[in-house]
């Protein structure tokens, strides 16, 4: 994929429902490709489109004031805390799912390489450093547009992460849990370092000019409407 112009949207830290609403807004309202970089104003668990809320420890999330939001993309539950999250939205993309993951994940791999890390694409949708997952990604395609979003883990509190997720019964063996825990790692870089590296790598990998922009009042209103009518509702959260 090569682009003449890529818009860069840095939306700062927001709550989970607004973060997901902005991603959906971009999916239906982008003409140019957009790289969005964002964070979370409070810890949040996002669950995949197909997941049940039984997959998370609902009670513990409430006790610890952790938001829960359902994504528009598949995949597993993600605990968003110390991380940089990105989304990439484009109308011009390879039709093959694996190929498109590989191409877009190329900007993550290149960014991590710029930061001195030996990052590799791990099909279908992960990026690893030294064999450990540091970035998970998920995609959806709507309106002839592809949205890929993903998290780059800066630091991970493994024990907290697992205390908030309900590990399926058949995975409950000490070895299997410890295998899963050992497969995840943070990259020990700052949000700003990763953000700068990601913008540089997007320019390097996809070519073209990066143009910074912000959402206007009208666009923000549309995102808020999506929060109110979809992402913050029980209808959506408990959909499955």
């Amino acid at each position: 994929m090569k682009f003449e112009k890529i818009r860069v949207l840095e939306t700062g830290n927001n709550i989970g429902s607004l973060n997901m609403a902005i991603d959906e807004f971009l999916l239906y309202n982008c003409s140019d490709p957009v790289l969005r970089i964002y964070g979370w104003s409070k810890p949040c668990i996002s669950i995949g489109y197909f997941q049940s809320t039984d997959d998370i420890n609902y009670k513990k999330c409430l006790e610890q004031n952790i938001d829960i939001v359902r994504r528009i993309t598949g995949g597993g539950a993600v605990f968003h805390d110390m991380e940089l999250t990105y989304s990439f939205v484009t109308k011009n993309f390879p039709q093959g799912i694996l190929e498109s993951y590989k191409e877009i994940s190329g900007i993550i791999i290149q960014a991590l390489k710029k930061l001195g890390l030996d990052a590799k694409f791990s099909p279908l949708n992960d990026v690893t450093v030294n064999g450990k997952k540091v970035c998970g990604n998920a995609q959806t395609r709507k309106n002839n547009t592809l949205l890929q979003h993903g998290t780059i883990l800066l630091k991970v509190d493994i024990e907290k992460m697992f205390s908030l997720l309900n590990v399926p019964i058949e995975k409950i063996s000490d070895k299997k849990i410890s295998d899963v825990k050992n497969r995840v790692s943070g990259i020990s870089k700052t949000f700003d370092q990763v953000s700068e590296a990601l913008k540089d790598s997007t320019r390097d990998v996809f070519g073209g000019k990066l143009v910074s922009y912000t959402l206007n009042q009208e666009e923000l209103k549309s995102c808020q409407k999506l929060v109110d009518e979809k992402f913050s509702t029980n209808n959506w959260l408990l959909k499955r």
Binding site: Y49, S52, D55, I97, R240
Partner: peptide, 30 residues
């Protein structure tokens, strides 16, 4: 990937009455 099935079915006819398929898989379109 995890696939969870919740379902009810008719014991006599063995026909599925309702089914819910959840998990961390991917289907496009969702």
């Amino acid at each position: 990937k995890i696939v969870k099935i919740s379902m009810s079915y008719n014991k006599e006819s063995q026909l599925i009455h309702s089914i819910k398929i959840t998990g961390d898989f991917f289907i496009h379109p969702e």
